[in-house]
């Protein structure tokens, strides 16, 4: 997998270049509070990216992550506003709902045979709608978001000395995700399905089950992200996480995963999430007009995607050429060997 290593080192190189560039040209960038703010910004996207990595490696896509975040956040807000149930109930409910939502995605894709894009597009609408429906309302019927005052829950948005809890959670989730992906049969099967669905099926892998698990993992990660995001904002609003799915997918793809599946890993997505966060954070230091932020972000994504495609095509060509050379060498050897000896 040498080309994977090169690709990974390249992302790390880009990351370093970015850090050095920002650090050298702006004295506000390399300050302690900024670094940990930066990590905090990367964390929620990063946690979601871990889950989405699984889905994308299976050659799928998940567009519903932002909406699941909103729905889980709304459920927590409702629990804290209307009841005095302990914090762990809200956390458990959130995680269960995230898992359920992910499982629903999996069902739609495997049972109803809907393409991933369409299934998650529709669940995006469903969960966003549900978040709106259960939003806390005032007596006149208009939405009135309430501040969450449950101190136990708000601890999630806090830090341990300088490091934010969400950053710690990010790395824990990332390690877990990478572990599952690289060290369990489930992970191997995930790659197998992404590389070639047919071969995987023929090998006896239960592709449907793996797909469902991938989506469930994505849903759980969305729920975890939602809990931290809500704790940080100290409230839940129905529009939470709008557009988040695109940032997450961009991070995953920049980190090395391909939509065609079978490539990339959680580590790459972590780098991707950090990359996006550093880019966003760094741009703020120069006091450019707001328009430049999104223009630069868009350009960077395009450049990364083009580079990725060109690099992988060149690698594939090289492999194909190497394969052809091997074939010719084998044929030549066989001709020489067949001439000298008998059948072997």
């Amino acid at each position: 997998m040498r080309q994977e290593t090169i690709r990974r080192l390249f992302s790390l190189l880009l990351l370093s270049i970015l850090i050095v560039a920002f650090g050298a040209t702006s004295k506000l960038f390399l300050t302690l509070p900024n670094i940990f703010t930066l990590l905090r910004e990367a964390s929620v996207t990063g946690i979601l990216a871990v889950g989405v990595t699984f889905v994308i490696i299976t050659a799928g896509i998940d567009l519903s992550t932002g909406a699941i975040v909103a729905f889980v956040a709304m459920v927590c807000a409702n629990i804290f506003y209307y009841t005095t149930l302990p914090v762990w109930v809200a956390l458990a409910a959130g995680l269960l709902i995230g898992a359920g939502a992910g499982y629903l995605n999996g069902l739609l894709v495997t049972r109803l045979h809907l393409p991933d894009f369409i299934a998650t597009l529709s669940t995006q609408g469903i969960f966003r709608g549900l978040a709106l429906i259960i939003a806390i309302r005032s007596s006149t019927g208009s939405i009135s978001n309430k501040v969450i005052t449950n101190q136990g829950f708000l601890l999630l948005g806090d830090r341990v000395s300088v490091v934010y809890l969400v950053t710690i959670a990010f790395f824990v989730v990332a390690l877990l995700g990478q572990g599952i992906l690289k060290m369990t049969p489930l992970g191997t099967h995930t790659y197998a399905i992404g590389s070639s669905r047919k071969s995987a099926d023929l090998s006896g892998i239960n592709s449907d089950r793996v797909k469902k698990v991938a989506f469930t993992i994505s849903g759980i990660c969305s729920a975890v992200g939602a809990l931290f995001l809500t704790a940080r904002m100290q409230t839940a609003i129905p529009e939470l996480g709008t557009g988040l799915e695109f940032d997450v997918i961009a991070a995953v793809v920049i980190g090395g995963c391909a939509f065609s599946g079978g490539r990339g890993d959680v580590f790459g997505s972590v780098v991707g999430a950090l990359f996006m966060a550093i880019l966003t954070n760094g741009i703020y230091k120069y006091n450019l007009p707001a328009a430049f932020h999104i223009i630069i972000k868009g350009c960077v994504i395009i450049i990364m995607v083009i580079f990725d495609s060109v690099y992988h095509r060149r690698m594939d060509d090289r492999i194909r050429k190497a394969g052809k050379m091997l074939d010719q060498a084998a044929a030549a050897a066989e001709a020489a060997g067949g001439g000298a000896g008998g059948i072997s």
């Binding site: 896509i61 894009f117 695109f246 997918i249 961009a250 793809v253 939509f259 999104i294 223009i295 972000k297 868009g298 350009c299 994504i301 395009i302 995607v305 083009i306 990725d308 495609s309 095509r313």
Partner: peptide, 14 residues
Amino acid sequence: RVPAFLITVATMNI
């Protein structure tokens, strides 16, 4: 030969 999905999302920003 890049995925149209991601490219058009990026150009949307631009």
